[in-house]
């Protein structure tokens, strides 16, 4: 049915919109099949590591995160843009140690067992640990997210907020 003015009819517009809807959603889902490691900073989540679900290459992101001394940082896992689990991470700046505890994970959504899904962390200590932390330099924390053999390496530069 053609419109009186020669343009698209209402039915054609509806069909076109429906087709575009399928294309937009399908393309987005296909392009965003990722597993991301995010960290909270100033009430916002920043992606610091990301693994494409169906490729072995890894994209790296670095971010500077500012925390108070002995502050805690939340690290979370986002699969296909869907937040699944929050990992509690704490950084003891004075003793140059950090801890990442794994939280509950909806492994069935990933299609992998929970044992094959790990997040590990390692703090790169300053050059002279006995001298204490050089506050002019951030402490780098390396994080590795591994899912089914695919790993994303990310790092946080933890810096004390000036008081």
């Amino acid at each position: 049915m053609a419109s009186e003015r020669g343009g698209f009819s209402a039915l054609q517009v509806a069909i076109l919109a429906g087709a575009l809807l399928v294309v937009v959603v399908g393309a987005d889902v296909a392009l965003n099949r990722t597993i991301s490691l995010q960290v909270e900073q100033a009430d916002d989540w920043q992606t610091i590591g990301q693994i494409p679900r169906e490729r072995s290459d890894v994209r790296h992101h670095d971010t500077l995160i500012e925390v108070n001394r002995s502050d805690e940082v939340d690290v979370r896992i986002v699969v296909d843009n869907q937040h699944l689990a929050t990992f509690e991470a704490s950084y003891d700046i004075r003793h140059h140690t950090e801890r990442i505890a794994s939280g509950p994970l909806a492994a069935d959504r990933l299609g992998v067992s929970e044992e094959r899904f790990t997040v590990t962390g390692d703090t790169l200590l300053p050059d002279s640990p006995e001298e204490g932390w050089d506050r002019s330099r951030p402490v780098r924390v390396d994080l590795r997210l591994t899912v089914d053999g695919n790993s994303a390496d990310a790092w946080l530069d933890v810096e004390e907020v000036p008081r």
């Binding site: 209402a10 509806a14 919109a17 429906g18 809807l21």
Partner: peptide, 13 residues
């Protein structure tokens, strides 16, 4: 937005 266009276009039809 496309859902809105689709529904209103069907309504117009």
């Amino acid at each position: 937005a496309l859902l809105a266009v689709m529904c209103t276009a069907l309504g117009r039809h």
